[in-house]
C-alpha cells in the first residue's frame, strides 16, 4: 500500500534542540501514536508536517506532494488539532464552525451537531472564555467532522474528563470505520495508546528510537522469575531486580537459560507503559 505521508531524513535544529533525522511513513487505515518524553520533538514534527516551519534537511511528502512546496492544496486532506490552539480566543464556537466548515468540502454537519450535544459545548461563548476541557472538546468537534483523509491529533485528550475520553474514543473508532483514513496521535495517556494505536513511534530528545507495531513491541519484551539469578549478564537483559530479569530479546534469553540450566519459575509480558518507560530511559 502506498503511504499517505512519507517523512524522509527530516532534520531541524532550533536554539537548544535538534530534531531528527526522522523517517516515518503513514499508511491508510492505521493509527500511529507518537510517544516520547516532554520536549522530545513530537509537536515540532507535526508542525513540520503541516508546513508551519522549514526543515533544515530531509523531505515530507503528503499524498505525493512536497509539503514545503508552493501548492498547499494537500492541506484539504489533513485536519490538524494542535496541542496549543492559537487564534481562536476571540471567536464563538458558531463563528469558528462557520469558518472551518466552509474550508472543507466533506464537512459533516450531523457529526458536528452530535459531538456538540454529546460534549455539551456552549457554541455562543467565546473560545477564550471556555475552560481548557471545553476548549479541547470544541476543537475536537471541529476536527473530526472535517472528514479529511488524515487526522493529526496533538494531545487530544489531556484535559478531557473520563466519560468524554470514552465518547471521543468511540467517535474516533466510528470515524476510522466509515472510510479509509489514517490518524497520527501524540498522547501521554496510556489508554489512548493501548486502545487506539496500531503503530508506535518512539522519540527521545528529538531522535527517533523506533517505529513498532504494537504487538511486535509487546512480544519483544519479557519478564522472567528465576530460581537463581546468574552472576554474569544475560543476553537481552535490560534490568534485573531480585529474582527477576527483564529481557528485550526473549529468544536469546530463553536459549541462554536452557543452556545454563536455569529454571524459569514464571514469565510474563510487560505492559506497554513499562516498555515505553524502558525505551525512554
Amino acid at each position: 500500500m502506498p503511504s499517505w505521508i512519507e517523512i524522509n531524513g527530516l532534520q531541524k535544529s532550533l536554539d537548544d534542540f535538534q530534531l531528527g533525522p526522522i523517517s516515518l511513513a503513514i499508511e491508510p487505515g492505521t493509527i500511529t501514536a507518537l510517544v516520547g518524553n516532554n520536549g522530545s520533538g513530537k509537536s515540532t514534527l507535526l508542525k513540520l508536517v503541516m508546513n508551519l516551519a522549514n526543515a533544515d534537511a530531509g523531505t515530507i511528502e503528503v499524498f505525493g506532494e512536497t509539503a514545503a512546496g508552493k501548492d498547499e492544496s494537500w492541506k484539504q486532506k489533513l485536519a490538524f488539532h494542535p496541542q496549543k490552539i492559537i487564534g481562536w480566543d476571540a471567536y464563538t464556537g458558531t463563528t469558528l464552525k462557520e469558518m472551518i466548515s466552509s474550508l472543507y468540502g466533506e464537512w459533516d454537519e450531523a457529526l458536528f451537531e452530535r459531538m456538540v450535544g454529546l460534549f455539551d459545548i456552549p457554541l455562543d461563548k467565546r473560545f477564550g472564555k471556555l475552560s481548557q476541557g471545553m476548549q479541547q472538546k470544541l476543537s475536537l468537534a471541529l476536527a473530526l467532522p472535517r472528514n479529511t483523509e488524515v487526522l493529526i491529533l496533538d494531545e487530544p485528550t489531556a484535559f478531557l474528563d473520563i466519560p468524554s475520553k470514552r465518547h471521543f474514543m468511540d467517535l474516533l473508532i466510528d470515524w476510522m470505520d466509515a472510510k479509509e483514513r489514517a490518524v497520527i496521535i501524540t498522547s501521554h495517556q496510556t489508554d489512548d495508546l493501548r486502545k487506539l494505536a496500531d503503530y508506535i513511534f518512539v522519540m527521545r530528545d528529538g531522535k527517533a528510537i523506533g517505529h513498532y507495531e504494537k504487538e511486535a513491541l509487546l512480544e519483544s519484551y519479557r519478564r522472567y522469575w528465576l530460581d537463581r539469578l546468574p552472576d554474569g549478564s544475560v543476553p537481552g537483559e535490560m534490568s534485573r531486580d531480585r529474582q527477576q530479569i527483564i529481557s528485550g530479546d526473549p529468544a536469546a534469553t530463553e536459549h541462554y537459560f536452557a543452556v545454563q540450566n536455569i529454571t524459569v519459575i514464571d514469565h510474563a509480558a510487560l505492559d506497554l507503559e513499562e516498555i515505553i518507560d524502558l525505551l525512554l530511559k
Binding site: M50, E72, K75, I86, G87, L103
Partner: peptide, 29 residues
Amino acid sequence: PKIFQMQKMDGDLWTVPAVIMLQQLPVPK
C-alpha cells in the same frame, strides 16, 4: 484590538495569531 495584534508566542516567536491559525487550515499563504 489587542487580541488580533502582533504578540509573543512560544519562545521568541512574534506574530499575529491569525497567521498561525490560518496556516493550520487549507488556506493558501
